[in-house]
Design a binder for these strands. Sequence first.
DNA 1: GCCAAAAGAACAAACGTTTGTTCAAATTAT
DNA 2: ATAATTTGAACAAACGTTTGTTCTTTTGGC
Lengths: 348, 348
Amino acid sequence: MAVTLRDIARKAGISTSTASRVLNGKTEKYRISQKTQILVQKAAQQLAYRPNQLARGLRLKKTHTIGLVLPDISNPFFAYVARIIQIHAFQAGYSLFVCNTDENQVTEIKQIELLLSYKLDGLIIMPVGVKYEHILRLVQEHLPFVLIDRSFDEIDANSVVVDNYSGAYKAVEHLIENGHHRIAIIQGLPDTYTNTARVKGYRDALSHYHIPVDPDLIVGNDFRQENGYIETKLLLKLETPPTALFTTSDLITLGALQAIYEEHINVPKDISLVAFDDVDFAPYLLAPLSAVQQPKELMGEIAVKLLINDMRSKGKFDKKRIVLEPKLMIRKSVLRVQASQPVAALSD
Amino acid sequence: MAVTLRDIARKAGISTSTASRVLNGKTEKYRISQKTQILVQKAAQQLAYRPNQLARGLRLKKTHTIGLVLPDISNPFFAYVARIIQIHAFQAGYSLFVCNTDENQVTEIKQIELLLSYKLDGLIIMPVGVKYEHILRLVQEHLPFVLIDRSFDEIDANSVVVDNYSGAYKAVEHLIENGHHRIAIIQGLPDTYTNTARVKGYRDALSHYHIPVDPDLIVGNDFRQENGYIETKLLLKLETPPTALFTTSDLITLGALQAIYEEHINVPKDISLVAFDDVDFAPYLLAPLSAVQQPKELMGEIAVKLLINDMRSKGKFDKKRIVLEPKLMIRKSVLRVQASQPVAALSD
DNA sequence: GCCAAAAGAACAAACGTTTGTTCAAATTAT
DNA sequence: ATAATTTGAACAAACGTTTGTTCTTTTGGC
């Protein structure tokens, strides 16, 4: 059915090897005559030849394809990064295989397994959890890969992440500086790289300003919208509800907004809000949202660069761990509390 | 380097063919003894054997992989549909190859070409434009595919789309019923399936209520945020600006919001707004946004079902064209105009 | 104890490429 | 005119599977 090199060879009256060499620009090395060259080119064009990448990959052990493993493509943050990665990969001559893990460790392992069996040249991974045996396997197999958004301090791998600790710290500090003491955090999936650092940033900011950490105000268990919704509902029902809320992902923020909206609560009058992940629509919300902005473009671009370096150098380069600084965008979702003078930080 | 069937065969002391048959559950047909079976299984396990899908695909002419071609993965609408498709494809045992076309006809052709050379089993496509020769080629090559979100009336193919005409009509009618006459539309990429129908819905709604169509109020040229931003800026600068705005994509809406926000214009007091594509955050905007909601889950699910049917039946099934009805979500972004009684529709 | 039949596993070809090597023809040198 | 050299293209093997066919061994019947 499909047109093969054989068909071209037959049509041009030459052998498949010659056809292959012409089509791959190996004409000088193998001294192919002008005449044969145009003969082959014509035949290929007329038959609309399209090389079979399976056969090619099998023979060459190179597929010019990289895989992207991410937790949730419908999450705007991941989707955006995915697009950046796709663009840069494409520019570099690689196509991209995108896989969703649904924030599920088991699915992640399955998906990586799958990608491996397609013999991709490299992988960009946003790993789900706290386990990394399957990632270690990649190291053993010398498969180039880079971790993005989330990493593991324990393993020596290319990675590009944001300083989640610092971002969270800044966000909470901003709330404190505006006079807030009862600050709740809705965390994402516990034991993920990003979540751990964000929660730690939250705790440390409080501690630094000598505000006791109230365990009732640390809630939530995944990065999804439902989590934001439910936990906000519950927080608002507390006997003394928090005066400020720190949400740790864009979807959590969306869920929180939904709950706040339903309860007819006003931001920032009734509750102040700062989010991790600056979403496109943040400025246009009922209360334009103050948020920690991650350098998404940079992350994607660097990830591709690191991966390509790794693939080209066959692992000879040292692994690099890139940490990018997030930026707090201050808008109008934080109220300066009346008895305001900010709690002074004792000593430094 | 990688473990192959050969390695297993050697380790188990049998031939590769036998190993293959055991691993593929062909034991009864080829009468493999229990003893050999467990021998092979053990060897496979110990060596962490992972079949090479390239070789497999080459031999079997089946890759159990489908491709998704979409205009812009960072567009929330497409990203969401992509996720639904991924989930359903995965459930059905297919992995997914996602490609971005950047709303560019040439890139689209390239990407499809690429996917074809990887010998995928089927394709789900959101085509960019008005040309469809490259799609026709798929028909000729008997490659199962389904068009989603956008289709071509001229070709007989599986497709699942939304009734864009009706959605746009409803949206504009809603504005008219609230007393608006000067209604602007920011269109997407001209000559795309979706855009054409949406603009027609707009025009027909106006005509039906005997409101003249003002060409100055039909603006825009692609589905991106910048387009929404620029055109809104310009519309607001008109000597008599429109009292209402109909945006035809989620990103256009975002751009429009950005412009409106910058100009310190109030929605709906100064301008009413209705959008095509109901975004997650619509309810929580400064003015909770009235929007045309598309059944994204259904679209994705149906697309996968159609594709799987097509792949299973090898094109014996008739092609189906599924049209889904969108729903107008009415929130608070439309002002009832003071001298209000709605313009009556003459006759029916 | 011999032959036929059944059981179990190996052989070999094929999928579509690429590429080192060999082979034949044309060209040049002697 | 013959040998040496260059030019141009074909041959064949390999990548890792799957599968129809063949081959060997075991079993059972008489």
